[in-house]
C-alpha cells in the first residue's frame, strides 16, 4: 500500500533522516516510535510532501508519489493528522470538517460524512457551531481526526494523536484508532506512547536519531528487552 525506500531529509546541514525504509500493507496499523527529535514527524512530513526529500522514494499503491505536491497526495487518498492538532481555530467545528472534505465534490456525500463523524464524536456535534479555537485540547484532537476522516482516506497518518491528553482521553483516542482501523483504513501511527501504540500495531519501527534501529510485529517489540528499557520505562 505504502512503501518508503531510503528516505533522506536534511535541514540545512542537519541530516534528520538517513535512509528510512518503511512498508505498510493494506489494512495494517503500523507504528513508528522513537524519542524526541528522532525524526518521526520528519518522516511523515516528507511522505506528505511538506518537507523536501533529499533522497528516497515513496510509492503508494504501486505508484511513484515521491515528487507530488501535498494537495495531489491528499487527492490520492493519503491524509495526515499533524502533530499538535492544528485545527483552524477561527473556523467553526463544522467548517473545519467541511474543509477536511475540500477535495470531495459530492455535496450529499460530505453531509453524510459529517453525520458519521458526529456519530463517532458526539461532542463535536454539540459544538458544531463553536469556533474550533474554543474547544478543549481533547476535543480539538477529535476534530483533527474527524477532519482527516472526511475524505475517507485510504492511508491515515497520525502524528502523536495522544500528545498532551489526560490518560482517560488517551484511552479514548486509541479506541478510536482501533475503530477507524476496523473500518478498513490503513494507518501509520507515530507515537511517544510506545506501549499503547505497540499493543495495537501489526508492525512497528523504532527510530533513533534519523535511522531505523529495530522493526518487527508490534507484540514482538513489546517483549523486546531493548524496547522495554528505552521506551516502555521497564527495567531489565
Amino acid at each position: 500500500m505504502l512503501k518508503v525506500t531510503n528516505l533522506h531529509v536534511n535541514y540545512g546541514g542537519i541530516n534528520a533522516l538517513r535512509g528510512i525504509d518503511i512498508n505498510i500493507e493494506e489494512n495494517q496499523i503500523v507504528t513508528l516510535i522513537g524519542a524526541n527529535g528522532a525524526g518521526k514527524s520528519s518522516t511523515l512530513r516528507a511522505i506528505m510532501g511538506l518537507v523536501e526529500k533529499a533522497r528516497g522514494k515513496v510509492e503508494y499503491d504501486g505508484e511513484d508519489v515521491t515528487d507530488l505536491p501535498t494537495k495531489d497526495i491528499v487527492k490520492k487518498g493519503m491524509v495526515m493528522v499533524p502533530e499538535g492538532r492544528r485545527v483552524f481555530e477561527d473556523l467553526t467545528v463544522e467548517e473545519n470538517l467541511i474543509l477536511g472534505a475540500y477535495t470531495r465534490g459530492d455535496f450529499s456525500g460530505i453531509r453524510a460524512e459529517i453525520k458519521n463523524i458526529y456519530d463517532m464524536f458526539p461532542r463535536l456535534k454539540e459544538r458544531s457551531w463553536q469556533k474550533a479555537g474554543t474547544l478543549s485540547g481533547g476535543e480539538q484532537q477529535m476534530l483533527a481526526v474527524g477532519r482527516a476522516l472526511m475524505v475517507k482516506p485510504k492511508v491515515l497518518m497520525m502524528d502523536e494523536p495522544s500528545l498532551g491528553l489526560a490518560p482517560l482521553l488517551v484511552r479514548d483516542i486509541f479506541e478510536i484508532i482501533s475503530r477507524i482501523h476496523s473500518q478498513g483504513n490503513t494507518i501509520l501511527l507515530v507515537e511517544q506512547n510506545a506501549k499503547k501504540a505497540l499493543e495495537i500495531a501489526d508492525y512497528a519501527y523504532v527510530l533513533e536519531t534519523g535511522e531505523l534501529v529495530l522493526e518487527g510485529p508490534g507484540n514482538e517489540l513489546l517483549e523486546n528487552s531493548k524496547v522495554q528499557e528505552a521506551y516502555l520505562g521497564e527495567a531489565k
Binding site: 506528505m48 494537495k71 487527492k75 495526515m80 474543509l99 475540500y102 477532519r147 475524505v151
Partner: peptide
C-alpha cells in the same frame, strides 16, 4: 480563511 492562518495545514486538506 484557513489559508490566512495556517498554510501547511491548509495544504494537508488538499487545498491548492
Amino acid at each position: 480563511r484557513a489559508l490566512s492562518k495556517d498554510y501547511e495545514t491548509a495544504s494537508l486538506m488538499g487545498i491548492d
